[in-house]
């Protein structure tokens, strides 16, 4: 274990036994395939990917809530295999399940119960949860029964529960799922502040809100069908995927295709849409290549009038879309997943 790692995952594989019908034999579903990953202390690590690609399974394995079928998961140097109690003491878990509290008890009774299980004295737990409830703006709801609380408030208390024992590693599965935009923004700010208070802390977060992952993560892993298809900083991912920008050209007229003939065939993933009296050309380019200049020159030579040129940094969504297609081969889907994770450790974006 290298000093400075919060999580180290080596050759992780997770299989589920599934049965399709009452009488059928159970088959094995491979939820995670050969995951290798290192998450540094002091970083927020985002995990994205489409539904069913293994994000939650991966973070459950990190949290010690699921046992790996193969491979090892080390959290601050300790293996989560077995009961994993030691590692669970170091981690705070916020699951994606809406129902995770005792509905008849108040939020305070619930949180004190979980604090007691973590061995925290009542007075200490009480002070801590009051402080955190104030921080998350939900102190007025502490003495209300959970069944009376909105989903968003429950989610805030779920986050407070994960923080009560002052963990070093926070593992969050879609933490802003039920939060209003202001509360979600506040949570993102809180996580960044929390991380800066102690350099040993780390956050692992999954989300379908890609702008959120882009905004707060130091590094990101994109999952595809149980593998890590690519990982690194946003910039590294852009370079890795071989196209750093999406370019949109608006060209006058609707006959650009015919006028250019085979001139645009070499352009990667060119898309041509006719919109009214104009044609919109979309393609990807690397920051340092001359594709754009070449296309502009070709259009000029063909007598086409370019109305506007718009270059957009490749977003996380673009990258995920690209990885869905043939571009996955660019990052070596057949090699050890996470091979791209050998990228250098990054600091705050």
């Amino acid at each position: 274990m290298i000093v400075g790692l919060a999580v180290e995952i080596i050759g992780l594989q997770k299989n589920y036994a599934v049965s399709k019908a009452f009488w059928s034999r159970r088959s094995t579903f491979q939820a995670l395939l050969d995951i290798n990953l290192q998450i540094n202390q002091g970083e927020i690590f985002g995990i994205v990917g489409r539904n069913g690609y293994g994000k939650t399974t991966l973070i459950r394995c990190i949290a010690g809530l699921m046992a790996p079928s193969q491979g090892r998961v080390l959290v601050y140097g300790s293996d989560v295999r077995g009961t994993g109690r030691q590692t669970r003491k170091l981690t705070g878990w916020v699951g994606a399940e809406e129902r995770s509290f005792y509905l008849r008890l108040t939020a305070r009774q619930n949180l004190i119960f979980f604090a007691r299980l973590q061995g925290i004295a009542d007075a200490e737990a009480g002070a801590c949860l009051t402080r955190l409830a104030q921080r998350f703006g939900c102190e007025d709801s502490l003495d209300r029964r959970v069944h009376e609380l909105s989903t968003g408030l429950r989610q805030r208390f779920s986050i407070i529960r994960a923080m009560l024992h002052d963990p070093r590693l926070l593992i969050l599965d879609e933490p802003t799922r039920s939060l209003d935009p202001f509360a979600a923004d506040d949570l993102r700010r809180f996580l960044t502040e929390w991380l800066h208070e102690d350099t040993r802390r780390s956050v692992v977060v999954t989300s379908h809100l890609l702008f959120e992952i882009e905004a707060m993560s130091h590094r990101i892993a994109i999952m595809k069908k149980g593998r890590i298809a690519a990982s690194g900083t946003l910039q590294q991912l852009r370079q890795l995927l071989g196209a750093g920008q999406r370019v949109e050209l608006l060209v006058q007229g609707t006959t650009v295709g015919e006028a250019m003939g085979s001139g645009l065939q070499a352009v990667e993933r060119l898309q041509m849409d006719v919109a009214g009296t104009h044609t919109r050309l979309t393609f990807y380019r690397r920051p340092d290549d001359a594709t754009l200049e070449q296309v502009l020159l070709d259009l000029h030579r063909a007598g086409q009038r370019v109305l506007s040129v718009n270059t957009i940094e490749l977003s996380l969504q673009d990258m995920i879309e690209r990885l869905e297609g043939e571009a996955l081969d660019l990052v070596g889907s057949e090699g050890p997943a996470g091979a791209t994770d050998s990228t250098s450790r990054s600091q705050a974006p």
Binding site: A63, G64, L65, G84, R85, Q86, T87, R88, K89, T91, W93, G95, E97, E98, R99, S100, F101, Y102, F114, L117, Q118, S158, R161, H165
Partner: peptide
């Protein structure tokens, strides 16, 4: 639905 958070306490 509380078994997971209970286990997560360590």
């Amino acid at each position: 639905g509380t078994l997971e958070p209970v286990f997560a306490t360590g």
